[in-house]
Amino acid sequence: MLRPIRALLPLALLAALAGCSTQDSAPPTTIHLDVRAQAPEEPVEERVPLGSEVTLEVSSDVDGLLHVHGFDEELTLTAGETTEKTFKASMSGAFEIETHDPDAVWIKLVVS
């Protein structure tokens, strides 16, 4: 009676293998972000391919700390300056990029 489910298994494995091949050929991506005193109402969605080198380029009006959830990357922001951070988008999923104090989500990073 569980046959339909079992039939999905080889499919899932196939799909996994197919998903595997996209890993290393992804081109590097740069995401630019302006952090202003006024936070956005909704975060901007940025899509990057799985496995790509992501460079986060942040110019800020305020001093603060920017946090990339999941990857646990942190950028120290200084008012009037541009800060950069590069990391590998090695996990699939959706991640929030946010500042603390004031708490605001600026980007929803979608890695797929």
Partner: peptide
């Protein structure tokens, strides 16, 4: 987490 399609199927 490098296999989003596998995650979706599971």
């Amino acid at each position: 987490l490098a296999f989003p399609t596998l995650i979706a199927f599971v």
